[in-house]
Amino acid sequence: MNPRDAPNQGAVGSGGVASRRSTSRVVLLRCGLVAGPLFVVTFLLEGAFKGSGYDALRHPVSSLELGSHGWIQVANFLVAGVLTIAFATGVWRSGHRSGGVLIGVWGAGLIGAGLFTTDPVNGFPLNTPDVAAYTTSGALHDGFSLPGFLALAVAQLVLCRGGWKWLTYSLLSATAYVVCFGLTSSAFNQTAGLIAVGGLFQRITVTIGWAYTVALAIRLLRRS
């Protein structure tokens, strides 16, 4: 073998490794295109056909875990959580480490919400009080969910750099997300005038957050 060929072979090898890493990052980022839409479509369909006293305007998405066919929402949480953590890894590998960690917390929150069933709230399931007694499972459900929601809000601020259009979108998205999350929390804490629309505000909050992750995935994929 000609010694002069060695550097060229090394360069080819390095290029192959870089290409594989780039392909892996793209696959991980594409998980961000799937997680949100899959989660939203699933809970919308399940909420529409749940029956048994479930009201999508009044009751939270997590309440879909309760009653008949509750396993569907459990699986929805777990699948979305795994896809989100994969996406977070892609964000990390794209150079946005803080943002990747925050989105990873959101993914972990989804998985925790699936592993631990929520408590009844706002009268669902039927014949339960508006504010039921806390159980260990319900406390763990909230203990995972709340940090996840907050992490996604912070992620929108941390990842806002990149031109005035992206900055404007990120700030508007974060603001709307936080406002709707606050209204959701007030509704589920039995604030008069909001109880009947707590589920609606939560759905708006979740949809805003997922829309941001999809937009972020598209942005990073274009750069890749």
Rank of each mutant, 00 (worst) to 15 (best):
V26K: 15
V26I: 14
V26G: 14
L28T: 11
L28R: 07
L29R: 08
R30E: 15
C31G: 15
G32E: 07
G32C: 06
G32D: 06
G32H: 06
G32R: 03
L33N: 02
L33W: 04
L33H: 05
L33V: 11
L33Q: 02
V34R: 09
A35K: 07
G36C: 10
P37D: 08
P37I: 05
L38K: 00
L38W: 07
L38E: 06
L38P: 05
V40A: 11
V40G: 02
V41M: 14
V41C: 10
V41I: 14
T42R: 02
T42Q: 06
T42L: 06
F43I: 11
F43Q: 13
L44R: 02
L44D: 08
L45M: 11
L45E: 04
E46W: 07
G47S: 03
G47N: 10
G47I: 00
A48T: 10
A48R: 04
F49T: 15
G51F: 03
G51T: 09
G51L: 03
S52P: 08
S52Q: 15
G53K: 05
G53S: 05
Y54T: 02
A56Q: 14
A56V: 14
A56Y: 07
L57T: 13
L57I: 03
R58C: 12
H59S: 10
H59E: 11
P60L: 08
V61K: 03
V61G: 09
V61T: 13
V61M: 12
S62D: 08
S62F: 08
S62P: 10
S62H: 06
S63Q: 15
S63N: 14
L64R: 00
L64E: 05
E65R: 10
L66C: 08
G67S: 01
G67E: 07
G67F: 12
G67Q: 06
H69L: 14
H69C: 09
H69T: 04
G70M: 04
G70R: 01
G70P: 03
W71R: 00
W71C: 05
I72A: 05
I72N: 05
I72Y: 05
I72T: 10
Q73S: 09
Q73Y: 02
Q73G: 01
V74C: 03
V74H: 06
V74I: 12
A75Q: 09
A75D: 10
N76Q: 09
N76R: 00
F77H: 02
F77K: 03
F77G: 06
L78Y: 00
V79P: 00
A80V: 00
A80S: 14
A80P: 00
A80R: 02
G81H: 01
G81S: 01
G81K: 00
G81F: 01
V82Y: 12
V82T: 07
V82D: 09
L83Q: 01
L83P: 02
I85M: 15
I85L: 15
A86H: 05
A86R: 04
F87D: 01
T89M: 13
T89A: 15
V91F: 01
